[in-house]
């Protein structure tokens, strides 16, 4: 029953996006957020949608996958749309006036504009996790956070913690499954009863799970020490991140898009209220 929860969304592939350096991908994703929020008019937004479409095509990911990441935010989209329609007022006559509710064409336009923006944001940023393995992602984070050493933030330790956490999620899931089966075999009833009863029924599962997590943590710490692990100082990598020409080309394209969007803003002004 626990096996259908997906952790990390990496979708194996060999597209251009998969092959980009994860550090660059992380940077470009941040840049993409800027790109999504730049446009102030419909021409800009259209350009962003086209740009996103281009990236999606390059990623060779099934459309179904993207739908899966957009689905959870649909509520948010609907919610902001409603708020925008209610609160944005226009100059002309309202399209609909009822009690205190007045809906202007400008409100609807804003709602549509913002909805497209949110969907683009989610679709674009989910590409990062779809095309990058969790380990590559932590490596990239470690690299990008390493300048923070100056302010005593240990990027290596943070990245190591994340790697270990990611590594152990499936293990702990399996363990949970096993403990649940074992307690069910002793007649534990996990499926019926009221809320309190169900919470109490979790005790025989949570205690062994905690105990085993601590046991695993000690064992892992011991194993790491046996292999002389002493933090990031002077540590080399088996897989070294390397930027290739395609990474710099990608960066150049993004920068060009940012410049173009700023140009469109100046050219057509703002259509947002």
């Amino acid at each position: 029953m626990l096996s259908d929860i997906t952790i990390g969304q990496y979708f194996p592939g060999n597209s251009l996006l998969h092959r980009l350096d994860p550090r660059m991908k992380l940077t470009l994703t941040l840049l993409f957020i800027v790109v999504v929020f730049l446009p102030q008019n419909w021409f800009g937004l259209l350009a962003v949608v086209a740009f996103l479409g281009g990236i999606l095509a390059l990623s060779h990911l099934p459309v179904k996958l993207l739908w899966r990441s957009i689905k959870p935010v649909l509520f948010l989209v609907a919610f902001t749309s409603v708020l925008n329609m209610l609160y944005v007022s226009g100059e002309g006559e309202p399209l609909l006036a009822f009690w205190v509710i007045k809906i202007y064409p400008e409100g609807i336009a804003t709602a549509v504009f913002i909805s497209i923006r949110i969907v683009c944001l989610i679709a674009g940023s989910s590409l990062l996790t779809y095309t990058t393995t969790p380990t590559a992602l932590t490596d990239a984070m470690e690299y990008l956070l390493s300048p923070l050493k100056v302010v005593k933030v240990n990027a290596h330790e943070l990245a190591m913690m994340m790697t270990i956490a990611l590594r152990f999620i499936p293990t702990l899931m399996e363990e949970t499954d096993k403990i649940m089966s074992a307690q069910k075999a002793r007649g534990a009833d996990l499926e019926s009863g009221g809320l309190m009863q169900r919470v109490r029924a979790l005790i025989p599962i949570l205690i062994p799970l905690f105990v085993s997590s601590f046991r695993r943590a000690y064992e892992l710490a011991m194993a790491m020490e046996c292999r002389c692990y002493q933090g990031g100082e002077g540590r080399t990598r088996m897989k070294r991140l390397q930027t290739a020409r395609r990474d710099w080309v990608a960066l150049a394209v993004y920068v060009a898009v940012v410049v173009a969007l700023i140009g469109l803003n100046i050219l057509f002004g703002s259509s947002l209220k």
């Binding site: 074992a182 075999a185 002793r186 007649g187 005790i203 025989p204 205690i207």
Partner: peptide
Amino acid sequence: RFRVGMVFQYPEHQLFEDTIYKDIAFG
């Protein structure tokens, strides 16, 4: 499940009560 008892691998990892007595009494 009461008629067909099942002991899992490493069953000691499923102990949870504060005494052995209570744990054996769980079933």
